[in-house]
Design a protein around this nucleic acid. Sequence first.
RNA 1: GGGGAGUUGGCGGAGCGGUCAAUCGCAACAGACUGUAAAUCUGUCGCCCCAGUGGCUACCAAGGUUCGAAUCCUUGACUCCCCA
Length: 349
Amino acid sequence: MPVGTAGAVKALTPRHLEEIDASIILGNTYHLMLRPGDELIARRGGLHKFSGWNRPILTDSGGFQVFSLADRRKIDENGVDFRSHIDGSKHRLTPESAVDIQANLGSDIAMVLDECPALPSTPEIIQKSLQMSARWAARCREQFFNHRKNRPDPFTQAQFGIVQGGTFKDLRAESAELTVSIGFEGYAIGGLSVGEPNEVMYRVVEETTPLLPVNQPRYLMGVGTPIDIVENVARGIDMFDCVMPTRNARNGQLFTSEGPINIKNAPFSEDDGPVDPACSCYTCRNFSRAYLNHLFRAGEMTAGTLNTLHNLSFYLDTMRRIREAISFGRFEDFRQKFHQTFTRRALIS
RNA sequence: GGGGAGUUGGCGGAGCGGUCAAUCGCAACAGACUGUAAAUCUGUCGCCCCAGUGGCUACCAAGGUUCGAAUCCUUGACUCCCCA
């Protein structure tokens, strides 16, 4: 899922996203409630209509902002007090209001409000946090059902629960059990990709996915590098979201089948080849590395657009190839080859 | 012809006797980025090396004053502005 925090995948239009065949994008409760406001969006017929995107949208609950904006919030049992990063004003997010806001946004998949604790942390702290997240999840589910019951219009939104538990196997198990027992349309693994080593993340995912229903989507939140994605599919994950392809594109890092390159680097200023010869996206079909190097250095905003288009194409293509490999029973083969060709740093031609 | 201002590292531009190999910005060179406070942030940026309270050469040029000069004086070269 390409990330479109504030109602847009940065640097792209919905037309671009359709062209690369993105099937679902992500929006953010916290950011949209502050600006322009979820009620304003509701008055305009919801986020799809407002943003001109008519395919599915998943909205994150603001749980991650509980973590990333830690210095400007206060958590208690009932919810989170936030100080807006935009103007400093005070706002409150509760499990119930997070559900209400996402209902206003009209997303297709809503996430429960959770607490994403910083790592590393002690088992005691993680356990208290996961238990509160579970209580919040139950409240979110109840509020979700209220919407289902009371809305005059058909309320077709799905809701996902989030498993926490840090890097501790038993705590992940506890959180998974609590979350699954509430019952959701899908399950996410949260609280990872917050600075822990990759092997730790892989291990935790490996220990957690067996505890989640096989016939429902499993979503690993906030991950990751192309290698991370392949490795976590291997461990049973179905869905991902990550800012990496979009943010890094705007910062000049482009993913290729041979690994990442930094298009800013001097050698590319005279490189007439495409970003990735194996890629058939608009950027790779029409523009050279030399041109993209120039656009970036010149500060042209088109650089952000072409780079983002390519990186998202690379990510979505990778997922397509993964699906194909799985359907042909050749995933292990794919995984091995991917590791061989996708090096940490692509060779410069 | 007369009067005035100036010349600093790739560029712009600080500095006006020691703490200056020289603030800062740009450019350049590299790095980071994982449920987006990010078209952001970080590092390097005279030469040499055993990489350090290390060596060398440096602020237009030459000479001088001084324990000590990018900073003061003299001469020269060049640039710019104003009045004729």
